[in-house]
Lab assay of single mutants.
Amino acid sequence: MTTFKLIINGKTLKGEITIEAVDAAEAEKIFKQYANDNGIDGEWTYDDATKTFTVTE
């Protein structure tokens, strides 16, 4: 398992979430479901060097 981080730069929600996932594809699926569940819709980026996803509304 690898640790992945999501940085949320939303209009109403900001913060960071860290999860353990098998790979970046699994982490992205989990993070996008979390964002969808919380009404966050924005532009996604991923930095493989730091294993960090960012979503900006």
Score class of each variant (00 low, 15 high):
residue 1 M to Q: 10
residue 1 M to R: 01
residue 1 M to V: 12
residue 1 M to S: 13
residue 1 M to L: 11
residue 2 T to K: 03
residue 2 T to N: 15
residue 2 T to W: 12
residue 2 T to I: 06
residue 2 T to H: 15
residue 2 T to L: 11
residue 3 T to N: 10
residue 3 T to I: 13
residue 3 T to R: 05
residue 3 T to L: 04
residue 3 T to H: 12
residue 4 F to D: 00
residue 4 F to T: 01
residue 4 F to L: 01
residue 4 F to R: 00
residue 4 F to I: 03
residue 4 F to N: 00
residue 5 K to W: 15
residue 5 K to P: 01
residue 5 K to E: 05
residue 5 K to A: 03
residue 5 K to G: 05
residue 5 K to T: 07
residue 6 L to W: 05
residue 6 L to N: 01
residue 6 L to S: 01
residue 6 L to E: 00
residue 6 L to I: 06
residue 6 L to H: 00
residue 7 I to F: 03
residue 7 I to V: 06
residue 7 I to Y: 12
residue 7 I to A: 11
residue 7 I to R: 14
residue 7 I to T: 04
residue 7 I to D: 06
residue 7 I to C: 02
residue 7 I to G: 03
residue 8 I to M: 08
residue 8 I to A: 06
residue 8 I to H: 14
residue 8 I to S: 04
residue 8 I to K: 01
residue 8 I to V: 13
residue 9 N to F: 14
residue 9 N to R: 09
residue 9 N to E: 07
residue 9 N to A: 05
residue 9 N to G: 08
residue 9 N to Q: 10
residue 10 G to V: 09
residue 10 G to Q: 09
residue 10 G to Y: 13
residue 10 G to M: 05
residue 10 G to L: 12
residue 10 G to R: 05
residue 10 G to I: 14
residue 11 K to T: 11
residue 11 K to G: 08
residue 11 K to F: 04
residue 11 K to M: 04
residue 12 T to M: 02
residue 12 T to H: 15
residue 12 T to G: 12
residue 12 T to C: 05
residue 12 T to I: 11
residue 12 T to R: 03
residue 12 T to V: 13
residue 12 T to S: 11
residue 13 L to C: 02
residue 13 L to G: 10
residue 13 L to N: 10
residue 13 L to V: 07
residue 13 L to R: 09
residue 13 L to A: 12
residue 13 L to E: 05
residue 14 K to M: 07
residue 14 K to R: 04
residue 14 K to S: 05
residue 14 K to C: 06
residue 15 G to I: 10
residue 15 G to C: 04
residue 15 G to D: 05
residue 15 G to W: 07
residue 15 G to Q: 08
residue 15 G to T: 07
residue 15 G to N: 11
residue 15 G to F: 12
residue 15 G to R: 15
residue 16 E to L: 07
residue 16 E to I: 10
residue 16 E to N: 13
residue 16 E to C: 03
residue 16 E to G: 04
residue 16 E to Q: 13
residue 16 E to K: 04
residue 16 E to P: 08
residue 16 E to T: 14
residue 17 I to K: 12
residue 17 I to C: 01
residue 17 I to P: 02
residue 17 I to V: 10
residue 17 I to Y: 07
residue 18 T to H: 05
residue 18 T to Q: 11
residue 18 T to W: 12
residue 18 T to K: 05
residue 18 T to A: 14
residue 18 T to Y: 12
residue 19 I to N: 12
residue 19 I to K: 14
residue 19 I to T: 09
residue 19 I to H: 04
residue 19 I to A: 14
residue 19 I to F: 12
residue 19 I to G: 13
residue 19 I to Y: 14
residue 20 E to L: 04
residue 20 E to G: 04
residue 20 E to C: 03
residue 20 E to P: 03
residue 20 E to N: 04
residue 20 E to S: 03
residue 21 A to M: 09
residue 21 A to T: 04
residue 21 A to K: 08
residue 21 A to W: 03
residue 21 A to R: 06
residue 21 A to S: 07
residue 21 A to L: 04
residue 22 V to W: 11
residue 22 V to F: 11
residue 22 V to N: 11
residue 22 V to G: 06
residue 22 V to Q: 13
residue 22 V to D: 09
residue 22 V to P: 05
residue 22 V to H: 06
residue 22 V to M: 08
residue 23 D to L: 04
residue 23 D to T: 13
residue 23 D to F: 08
residue 23 D to I: 09
residue 23 D to W: 02
residue 23 D to Q: 03
residue 24 A to H: 13
residue 24 A to V: 14
residue 24 A to R: 10
residue 24 A to L: 09
residue 25 A to H: 12
residue 25 A to Y: 15
residue 25 A to C: 04
residue 25 A to P: 05
residue 26 E to N: 06
residue 26 E to Y: 14
residue 26 E to H: 13
residue 26 E to A: 15
residue 26 E to I: 09
residue 27 A to P: 00
residue 27 A to S: 05
residue 27 A to E: 00
residue 27 A to N: 00
residue 27 A to H: 00
residue 27 A to T: 02
residue 27 A to D: 00
residue 27 A to I: 03
residue 27 A to W: 00
residue 28 E to K: 06
residue 28 E to W: 08
residue 28 E to N: 10
residue 28 E to H: 11
residue 28 E to G: 15
residue 29 K to L: 08
residue 29 K to Y: 09
residue 29 K to I: 06
residue 29 K to T: 09
residue 29 K to Q: 08
residue 29 K to H: 12
residue 29 K to P: 14
residue 29 K to V: 14
residue 29 K to E: 02
residue 30 I to E: 02
residue 30 I to F: 15
residue 30 I to Y: 10
residue 30 I to W: 13
residue 30 I to L: 08
residue 30 I to V: 13
residue 31 F to T: 05
residue 31 F to R: 00
residue 31 F to W: 12
residue 31 F to Y: 10
residue 31 F to H: 01
residue 31 F to P: 00
residue 31 F to M: 08
residue 31 F to N: 00
residue 31 F to Q: 00
residue 31 F to C: 01
residue 32 K to F: 09
residue 32 K to S: 11
residue 32 K to C: 03
residue 32 K to T: 09
residue 32 K to I: 05
residue 33 Q to G: 15
residue 33 Q to H: 12
residue 33 Q to K: 14
residue 33 Q to D: 07
residue 34 Y to L: 06
residue 34 Y to K: 14
residue 34 Y to E: 05
residue 34 Y to P: 00
residue 34 Y to A: 04
residue 34 Y to S: 13
residue 35 A to Y: 01
residue 35 A to S: 11
residue 35 A to E: 02
residue 35 A to I: 03
residue 36 N to Y: 14
residue 36 N to P: 03
residue 36 N to I: 10
residue 36 N to V: 13
residue 36 N to L: 13
residue 36 N to K: 13
residue 36 N to T: 12
residue 37 D to M: 15
residue 37 D to F: 15
residue 37 D to R: 11
residue 37 D to G: 14
residue 37 D to H: 10
residue 37 D to N: 15
residue 38 N to I: 04
residue 38 N to M: 09
residue 39 G to S: 10
residue 39 G to A: 09
residue 39 G to D: 03
residue 39 G to R: 12
residue 39 G to I: 13
residue 39 G to V: 10
residue 39 G to H: 10
residue 40 I to C: 01
residue 40 I to L: 14
residue 40 I to G: 02
residue 40 I to Y: 14
residue 40 I to A: 08
residue 41 D to T: 12
residue 41 D to H: 14
residue 41 D to V: 15
residue 41 D to Y: 11
residue 41 D to K: 05
residue 42 G to L: 04
residue 42 G to V: 03
residue 42 G to D: 02
residue 42 G to E: 02
residue 42 G to Q: 03
residue 42 G to C: 01
residue 42 G to S: 06
residue 42 G to I: 09
residue 43 E to A: 12
residue 43 E to P: 08
residue 43 E to H: 10
residue 43 E to S: 10
residue 43 E to N: 12
residue 43 E to V: 13
residue 44 W to I: 15
residue 44 W to Q: 01
residue 44 W to C: 01
residue 44 W to S: 01
residue 44 W to D: 00
residue 44 W to T: 01
residue 44 W to K: 00
residue 44 W to P: 01
residue 45 T to L: 09
residue 45 T to R: 10
residue 45 T to Y: 03
residue 45 T to G: 05
residue 45 T to I: 07
residue 46 Y to W: 06
residue 46 Y to G: 00
residue 46 Y to F: 08
residue 46 Y to C: 01
residue 46 Y to K: 13
residue 47 D to F: 06
residue 47 D to V: 09
residue 47 D to L: 09
residue 47 D to A: 11
residue 47 D to G: 12
residue 47 D to C: 05
residue 48 D to H: 13
residue 48 D to N: 05
residue 48 D to P: 08
residue 48 D to S: 13
residue 48 D to R: 01
residue 48 D to A: 13
residue 49 A to W: 03
residue 49 A to Y: 02
residue 49 A to D: 13
residue 49 A to M: 06
residue 49 A to N: 09
residue 50 T to H: 07
residue 50 T to Y: 08
residue 50 T to I: 05
residue 50 T to K: 11
residue 50 T to F: 05
residue 50 T to P: 04
residue 50 T to R: 13
residue 51 K to C: 04
residue 51 K to Q: 08
residue 51 K to P: 01
residue 51 K to L: 07
residue 51 K to Y: 08
residue 51 K to S: 08
residue 51 K to E: 03
residue 51 K to A: 13
residue 51 K to R: 08
residue 52 T to V: 09
residue 52 T to Q: 12
residue 52 T to P: 00
residue 52 T to I: 11
residue 52 T to L: 12
residue 52 T to R: 09
residue 52 T to S: 13
residue 52 T to M: 10
residue 52 T to C: 01
residue 52 T to A: 11
residue 52 T to H: 14
residue 53 F to P: 00
residue 53 F to A: 02
residue 53 F to R: 00
residue 53 F to D: 00
residue 53 F to Q: 00
residue 53 F to N: 00
residue 53 F to L: 02
residue 53 F to W: 13
residue 54 T to M: 15
residue 54 T to V: 06
residue 54 T to S: 08
residue 54 T to W: 03
residue 54 T to P: 00
residue 54 T to L: 11
residue 54 T to Q: 04
residue 55 V to R: 00
residue 55 V to Q: 01
residue 55 V to Y: 07
residue 55 V to K: 00
residue 56 T to Y: 09
residue 56 T to F: 06
residue 56 T to I: 07
residue 56 T to Q: 05
residue 56 T to A: 04
residue 56 T to V: 15
residue 56 T to G: 04
residue 57 E to C: 03
residue 57 E to F: 14
residue 57 E to D: 09
residue 57 E to I: 08
